[in-house]
Design a binder for these strands. Structure first.
Length: 503
RNA sequence: CGCGGGGUGGAGAAGUGGUCUAUCUCGUUGGGCUCAUAACCCAAAGAUCGGGGGUUCAAAUCCCUCCCCCGCAACCA
């Protein structure tokens, strides 16, 4: 048994989580559940990044205290556990002064040799409350606020990333720090060439909402320094050394494409400076658009997972996001496509298959089937084994959608198998009947096991429909390829539609 | 010369040198079945893989060039 530590990025809690972060936390959930089934010791961390200018400003706009503001919104993110049935083990908040702050400050101290104070001079637009690049100016004015920016000098701490560029390049090239998909790896290797030291602090008078820099009360940690530290503080860095040693390094950081540079360049540099091991891999997903449009509050097309789940249920949304959208590519969400997937894949293929087999066992076998190996069709068994190989390979290379494609291909095979063998025929002899139904039931049970990390509730219902032992042990330890149900008796219980068709 | 992503049968997608005589889902057409959630199964029609040029024994897949779409200020993974 090996340990498996997986993290998601920690989003800014500016309002409710939208469906894009839903995708990320779902992908992580599948990986976590999959590894638990394999018997790994899994730790799945998510959380929120509550500092930084954006949160600071939003709270001001809303007109309530910062802490109250983040308390309220962070709760919405934590709720994803029940909204999407996420199996995270821990939820870290960067405003947590007990769990997060000490580690974030210790990390700073550990990096201190590579952090230096520098006077930074730039053009500052009061309207933007931010530095802007000279090349973005139009006629010497800020394009947005139409005012001349001021020349401002500011003292910041900088991190000497340049010192580690060679090492990081080597580690990424050799896959010691593995970046998936590989296109992203090349992007980062390219980007590394021009990376320069980056600012890791802000003056207190600009933003007080953050973690103080150790030994310099005039500066606050830049939000990215603070945020990245969550991956180690949550498991005990600076607070619980034993637990930290148990879990670090992370096996997977799962993130969106927009923040890869922080994870592939800055974060490794910080860890190297602090003398800590690097994460083993970074998995990068794409962005979700809605009806082909970028998600945007100003466009008003933001959809929260909660909205969708209320109408369609948890597993249909899980299925959609994990199947319709390629794990590492951009994808699109629309209610139309969701309904198509629901009816086509969940109701017609999976749900209906379960119904017809259950009904056949009920009417032809008086509701009971003793599962015997000798009744298994060899070709079908072969098909299941192939599916299993493809499934595992897909998940382990972070192509979750392909794993589901393989499973649905197997379900199609079962439907076709049934039609070919016609167990409903009046003159079917008992052996033929047993062979056909044992084989199709076997496929369904295998499929349920494959589906379990993706659609936990559905897998549970399928086992229940055939009276399979529902103890946690069975559901967790069941191996594929029929082993664990040979010799069992399956009893069909009241048949209910898993996914009633939508009109 | 800004950067990046993309253009594949009616729609949406997969596939990035040789099982591609291009795959899948939906749709369309014809047939079958009647166990099942008007579901399921079989078959067919439909694409010169954005245009042009090149490399190669071999290209949707590599190179060049042109055209078009979408991101790259903010909200935002």
């Amino acid at each position: 048994m090996s340990k498996y530590y997986i993290t998601t990025a920690i989003p800014y809690p500016n309002g409710k989580p939208h469906i894009g972060f839903g995708l990320e936390i779902l992908q992580a959930d599948v990986l976590a559940r999959y590894h638990r089934i394999l018997g790994d010791d899994v730790w799945f961390l998510t959380g929120v990044d509550e500092h930084g200018l954006k949160v600071y400003r939003s709270a001001q706009q809303v007109g309530i205290g910062f802490q109250e503001y983040v308390d309220r919104n962070s709760a919405e993110f934590a709720k994803l556990k029940s909204i999407l049935n996420i199996s995270y083990d821990d939820f870290i908040r960067t405003t947590d002064r007990v769990r997060h702050w000490p580690g974030a400050q210790q990390l700073w101290r550990a990096c201190a040799d590579d952090i230096y104070l520098k006077e930074y001079e730039g053009l500052y637009c009061v309207g933007c409350e931010a530095f802007i690049n000279k090349k973005d100016l139009i006629d010497g004015e800020c394009p947005e606020h139409h005012i001349k920016p001021e020349v401002v000098k500011e003292k910041n701490y900088f991190f000497r990333i340049t010192k580690y560029k060679k090492d990081i390049t080597r580690l990424i090239e050799s896959d010691e720090l593995k970046i998936l998909p590989t296109g992203r790896k090349h992007e980062m290797l390219n980007l590394l060439k021009d990376s320069e030291d980056f600012s890791v602090s802000r003056p207190l008078e600009k933003i007080s909402w953050g973690i103080p820099v150790p030994d310099d009360s005039s500066q606050v940690q830049y939000v990215w320094f603070d945020a990245l530290a969550n991956y180690i503080t949550a498991i005990g860095y600076g607070r619980d050394e034993e637990n930290f040693q148990k879990w670090w390094p992370a096996d997977v950081h799962l993130i969106g494409k927009g923040i890869l540079r922080f994870h592939a360049i800055y974060w490794p540099a910080m860890l190297l400076a602090a003398g800590l091991p690097l994460p083993k891999s970074i998995y990068v997903h794409g962005y979700v658009s809605i009806d082909g449009e970028k998600i945007s509050k100003s466009l008003g097309n933001v959809i929260s997972p909660e909205d969708v789940v209320k109408k369609y249920g948890i597993d249909p949304l899980r299925y959609y996001l994990l199947r319709e959208i390629s794990s590492t590519e951009d994808g699109d969400f629309s209610y139309k496509k969701l309904e198509d997937r629901y009816n086509g894949d969940l109701a017609n293929n999976l749900g209906n298959l379960v119904s017809r087999v259950a009904k056949l066992i009920e009417t032809k076998m008086e509701g009971e089937l003793n599962f015997e190996e000798r009744f298994l069709d060899h070709e079908a068994k072969n098909k299941v084994e192939k599916t299993s190989a493809k499934y595992k390979d897909s998940i382990e290379s972070f192509r979750l959608h392909e794993a589901l494609t393989a499973v649905w291909d197997l379900l199609g095979y079962a439907n076709s198998f049934l039609d070919f063998h016609k167990p409903w025929a009046k003159d079917a002899d008992p052996d033929h009947l047993l062979k056909t139904l044992t084989t199709t039931l076997g496929i369904i049970l295998n499929a349920a096991w494959f589906i379990k990390p993706f659609l936990p509730e559905t897998a549970y219902k399928i086992f229940a429909a055939f009276g399979a032992d529902l103890s946690a042990e069975t559901l967790v330890k069941v191996d594929d390829n029929y082993k664990s149900w040979v010799g069992r008796k399956f009893v069909v219980s009241k048949v209910e539609s898993l996914f009633p068709r939508l009109q």
